[in-house]
Design a protein around this nucleic acid. Structure first.
Length: 479
RNA sequence: GGCCUCUUAGUAUAACGGUUAGUACACCGGGUUUUCAUCCCGGCAACGCGGGUUCGAUUCCCGCAGAGGUCACCA
């Protein structure tokens, strides 16, 4: 089995089209076949500088390594269509020789009048109805058209099932443009054939041009590869397919937002496909095992930002629980608050180890861990408004904090001892956990939430913790 | 407009023609010595409409409606 991902270098890969890279990848890996990356850069007008690198970068990040293509090379080089012009022309000449292609010197104005004629007659426009009797000899600078053989065509789509199309959708499509480069319609057929591609995964938008491709395969005496039409990913609102105009985010943007490639791959693969079990979390290897074409959905699916967030949290926890903090930590380095730069990895790993089950994305670290790196600004309103603390007098609050400080000063600074000390404080002071713990927690962090108190204390360290408690006592007394 | 495709809760989906239509996210409630989160328990919520076929239809067939795709010297 040979599959391919064949994007145009017109910008970033967004989540609306990355599935047409994921599914062929999974298929190839499952079958022990190969996965090709081919760059379809025949439209010079839409070419965007750097887009190829962006595509490569995206695939690498997602873990979709290709066996043939740019960088790695392969038996069917080159993998850029712009460099394969001679190959297309060779195949085009075969069609000309067998009388199945002809040069087209019709001006665009003339074509427009053909169209207008059809519009006024309310009949579908087909160029072949205006096919010239004796077209000129083909030479570069002139578009080359396929001579269609319109008839009823049947084919099998692995997702959509048995398909039928009539002659009314088959036309003399352009094979080679005036600039000498082929159109997608021609190039992909030649490339897939010469590269040995056995399975084509592409969006359903190609379904309606398939009859034309079938005619080309037939004329060129080529076997038709297995055709796999992938339903669209829908925009957040409405039912249209997700595109850049709808603000479709690039895949790499999710990386910048702190989404793990494991989570994005997992989510995207399961959007519009499932293996029939109730499993939700799949690693890449599990996807390769479980994937099957016949369970791909036929209807479009909406990308749900909330669910990818949930899944990302699951993956953060899974990876840390299974592989440990040390192995996961390097992936977090770009996501810490600026103030963390002054701290070493050992400290940041300790912070990570007590905060990670609160993360939905890696970039949550930026907001959630600041008080581990800088002394928080004292905000007594947080104490005064707290539902457990607002009924306690300032004198009592101050006394309570001082008692706690004294107790903690004489405690060995490890999580277990700190937990024991806090429990003892509960007994000594006769306070409810909600009162004592809320007060200490706020004095330490002035954050809306933080990890368990004994862990927060342990990681902050004795000096910092006691200093922060003192600072709040002082602030209350001066208020 | 022609041709083609799709249609189960808000979202993603499951269910040999027979089930109280299952699961996950979201949301709501409860539990786990403070908070937030994790985890656990519970709740809410769906077969587009109309005809057939059948003892019985979410499931098969036909219409309709709605939505989408496509009709380029773009891919």
């Amino acid at each position: 089995m040979k599959t391919r991902f064949a994007p145009s270098p017109t910008g970033y890969i967004h989540i609306g089209n990355v599935r047409s890279a994921i599914y062929p990848y999974l298929l190839a890996r499952q079958a022990g076949g190969s996965f090709i990356l081919r760059i379809e850069d025949t439209d010079q007008a839409r070419y965007v500088d750097g887009a190829t690198e962006l595509i490569e970068d995206t695939l690498k990040w997602l873990g979709l390594e290709w066996d043939e293509g740019p960088i790695v090379g392969g038996p069917s080089e080159p993998y850029f269509q712009s460099e394969r012009k001679a190959i297309y022309h060779e195949w085009a000449k075969k069609l000309i020789a067998m009388g199945r292609a002809y040069a087209d010197d019709t001006s665009s104005e003339q074509i427009q009048t053909y169209r207008d004629t059809c519009t006024t007659k309310k009949i579908p426009y087909l160029y072949r109805n205006f096919r010239p009797e004796s077209p000129p000899e083909w030479h570069e600078g002139l578009p080359l058209r396929f001579k269609a053989d319109p008839k009823i065509r049947h084919w099998h789509d692995e997702v959509m099932g048995e398909m039928t199309a009539g002659p009314e959708v088959q036309d003399d499509i352009i094979l080679i443009k005036a600039d000498g480069l082929p159109t997608y319609n021609f190039a992909h057929i030649v490339d897939d054939a010469t590269m040995g591609v056995t399975h084509i995964c592409r969006g359903v938008e190609y379904l309606s041009s398939t009859p034309n491709y079938l005619a080309l395969y037939e004329a060129l005496k080529l076997d038709v590869p297995h055709l796999i039409s992938l339903p669209h990913i829908l925009a957040p609102t409405g039912n249209k397919k997700l595109g850049k105009r709808d603000g479709a985010k690039s895949v790499t943007e999710y990386r910048d937002d702190g989404i793990l490639p494991e989570a994005l791959l997992n989510y995207l693969a399961c959007l519009g496909w499932n293996d029939g079990t109730e499993e939700e979390i799949y690693s890449k290897d599990q996807l390769i095992q479980a994937f099957s074409i016949n369970r791909i959905q036929t209807s479009g699916a909406r990308f749900d930002e909330t669910k990818i967030l949930w899944m990302n949290g699951q993956w953060i926890r899974k990876l840390i629980d299974e592989e440990g903090i040390d192995s996961f930590y390097p992936r977090t380095i770009d996501y810490w608050p600026e103030s963390a730069a002054a701290y070493d990895d050992v400290y940041k790993k300790r912070v990570l180890s007590i905060i990670y089950d609160r993360l939905k994305t890696l970039s949550d670290l930026r907001e959630m861990t600041t008080y581990f790196f800088t002394n928080p600004e004292i905000d007594l309103a947080m104490i005064n408004k707290n539902k457990f603390l607002k009924k306690i007098s300032e004198e009592d609050l101050s006394e309570l904090l001082q008692t706690a400080t004294t107790k903690l000063e004489n405690t060995t600074w490890d999580a277990d001892s700190l937990q024991d000390a806090l429990n003892q404080l509960l007994v000594d002071t006769g306070r409810k956990p909600a009162e004592l713990f809320s007060l200490i927690r706020i004095a330490l962090s002035y954050a809306p939430f933080s990890p368990a108190l004994h862990l927060t204390l342990e990681v902050l360290g004795k000096n910092t913790s006691l200093a922060r408690l003192h600072a709040t006592v002082t602030a209350i007394e001066n208020a």
